[in-house]
Simulated assay, not measured.
Amino acid sequence: MPTSRRTFAVAAVAALVLPLSACGSGGDGGSSTDASGKVEGDITFQTWNLRANFKDYFEGLIADFEKKYPDTHVKWVDQPGEGYADKISADAAGGTLPDVVNVSPDLVAPLAKAGLALDLDKAAGQYEKEYLDGAWASHRIPGMDGTYAFPWYLNTGPLFYNKSLFEKAGLDPEQPPKTYDEVFDAALKIADKTDGEVATLANVPTIEDFGRYGVPLMNKEGTAFAFNDAKGVQLLARYKELYDAKALDPQALTATPESSGKKFLTGAVAMNPGSALDLANFKKQAPNLYENIGITDQITSTGHVNMYVMGLMVNAQSQRKPAA
């Protein structure tokens, strides 16, 4: 699932986990990078909101693994999407992280800095050749040596829009906006035509929005953020314009992916990012929306889009690293 809109939850992970790096990560030898040895024992495998759509797949995968390694037992735990980062932070602080954890780069970074993520370059470097270079590098942490999660799956994520709301505002439902300026213009028209009852966007801009708008995110050396420049201010000013016109949802400052999704389902918001799996939810929970759903690419003013990356992290404290 897309991970970019969890800014405050990820900050909570860092706030709770990073202090652990100052006092050690457990001290019982479990943090060794040695993953050699017999594949045996009980391990816990945690995924992120995947059971509903992939239950049969994972149960079959686990059955095959346990058949291949009869001295193992895998406990599969699937956590809901909402509050996932908070769950990881609590487990990290309490020393109860599962042996294998579904992570994204932003979630694995504080865990790696705290010594809780296994360095795969040292423990499993022989598998690097099985992946594309960019995929293996996706869970490297700036300022640290090593790779801290196996690449798993990638997602660019579509952008959904409500064709009926576009049509009611006098916009061509078959020609959705492609750039940020086009989105801003359409949003102001929709807000005006609905007297502020329908917003187009439900979230404040994320770091990805700055990048796709054309704002330089890092300096040339890659050592410091650089988006606090004139173009970055310009983007925020446009969002402020939308907020004042009610073209940006009034709850955008405290929105979560779940709350934004609910607003899109009810027709209070005209556009919302998501994944292909959302179509089944639309069909079941909002048939009228499903009949009027439009699908387009991520908004970009640069011609480039971002990639959401998921990985599998091995807990550096696991006592069953070969199995993990």
Rank of each mutant, 00 (worst) to 15 (best):
R5G: 01
F8H: 10
V10T: 11
A12C: 01
L16W: 02
L18F: 07
L18C: 08
S25R: 03
G26S: 09
G26Q: 06
E40T: 13
Q46G: 01
F54M: 12
K55L: 09
L61P: 03
G81Y: 14
G83H: 09
G83R: 09
I88Y: 04
I88M: 14
L97Y: 05
N102M: 12
D106I: 07
L107W: 05
K113C: 08
L116G: 07
L120R: 07
E128G: 03
W136R: 05
W136C: 04
W136T: 03
A137T: 10
I141K: 11
M144W: 04
W152E: 04
Y153S: 11
T156I: 12
P158G: 09
K163A: 12
Y180S: 10
E182I: 11
A187C: 08
K189Q: 15
A191E: 00
G196V: 00
V204R: 01
D209E: 13
R212Q: 06
G214A: 12
N219K: 09
N219P: 07
E221R: 10
T223A: 11
A226F: 08
K231L: 12
L235N: 07
R238H: 13
Y239S: 01
A255V: 06
K263D: 14
L265D: 05
T266R: 13
A270M: 06
G274R: 08
K283T: 14
A286P: 12
N292V: 15
G294C: 06
I295V: 15
T296Q: 14
T296G: 13
D297L: 10
I299P: 08
S301K: 04
V305K: 13
M307Y: 06
Y308K: 05
M310I: 06
M310T: 10
N315G: 04
A316K: 10
Q319M: 03
